[in-house]
Design a binder for these strands. Structure first.
Lengths: 194, 194
DNA sequence: GTCTATACTTTGATAGAC
DNA sequence: GTCTATCAAAGTATAGAC
């Protein structure tokens, strides 16, 4: 078997939950997309939809973090890396018809006040992103507190632009947010290096 | 009748859709919250859940805009007004146990790729917010293009901070985003007045 | 591990009396 | 305009054969 059933179910889950949310995605829909039998789901995920979603969120968050870290590693410096991330996000939005943006934001907002298990999963993902970006900013000479604030603001700009760009079906918000993120980072780095 | 049935249904809808999303909110739940009979919904909203949600989104967006414009009007200058908006958002998050943030973001992400009617409703709301803020920035001497970029970035920071603050159950992201929004606005206004 | 069939619940929506 | 009763469909989850 090329890809095993469990992985196909997770793949389909990541895509559907990201695009349609938790409540908006049916289990039957996931299984149809994954070309898997109904019983397979409960064989691999005895906890049902909740367990499946939690694992989809955590792996999806880790995959997106890897993607971003790859872009940052490939860039000559941190500032260029941030520019590249926003440009890449804009391109992905355009290429997917404004469907694929943040892999977990839709679910995060949906479950924040209703499902503590899933809320924790989304919180762990965001916390990991913030920590990773903060570390990179600290490593170029910025103090911890300032770096944390810049990391959070950069991710907030990215997430907010995802909301606006998907809704308005335009890359303009992503581009504008990228500009502001770049300027904010430039200002912080300039201060740190003086 | 103190408040009429139609308005009670809309009130409950605005709250529930904002906190739990579109697919995650049941019509029966709305009617229970509104203390309204089942048939009343289809009397006032023949289009059913979709029509109800569209009206809830549009009115909710308009109400939030009025709230923000009130804060901006009360401030001595635009920069202070922006600071006040982020501080107010942080306080509301804290006071509601991180439940009430953007009234339409959850639904916006959910329906962006699945329901064109509702997507258009959320898009109209965001477009109205962007236009209103852009106008205010232009009115203090900033050119149209720069003002649009700053308005979009400010709203993106607010929306992104809503996602992070609700998920992490912390006002830290909202405060950090407010700082960055303030600095971005200060830089633009400084340039415009020179 | 996978298939088919099905139980049980909830959902959105409608009909008809009043 | 509101009430009660009810429908058909979709939702999640389980059972048992293979």
């Amino acid at each position: 078997m090329a890809t095993d059933t469990r992985e196909r179910i997770l793949d389909a889950s990541r895509v559907l939950f990201a695009r349609r949310g938790y409540a908006g995605t049916g289990i039957k829909q996931i299984l149809a997309e994954a070309d898997a039998a109904f019983a397979s789901l409960y064989h691999f995920f005895p906890g049902g939809k909740d367990q499946l979603a939690a694992e989809a969120i955590r792996t999806s968050g880790a995959m997106y973090q890897q993607l971003v870290e790859g872009v940052l590693d490939a860039a000559p410096d941190l500032l260029t890396g941030i520019i590249d991330c926003f440009a890449g996000a804009a391109e992905t939005l355009r290429a997917t018809g404004y469907a694929d943006a943040c892999p977990i934001a839709t679910v995060a907002l949906e479950v924040a006040s209703t499902d503590e298990t899933l809320r924790q999963a989304t919180a762990d993902v965001f916390a990991s992103w913030i920590t990773a970006l903060t570390t990179r900013i600290v490593s170029v000479g910025v103090d911890e507190a300032t770096a944390t604030e810049l990391a959070i603001s950069t991710i907030a700009l990215l997430e907010g632009a995802f909301v606006l760009s998907r809704t308005l079906r335009s890359t303009v918000p992503m581009t504008a947010a990228g500009q502001t993120a770049t300027e904010a980072a430039r200002a912080v780095l300039k201060r740190a290096q003086s």
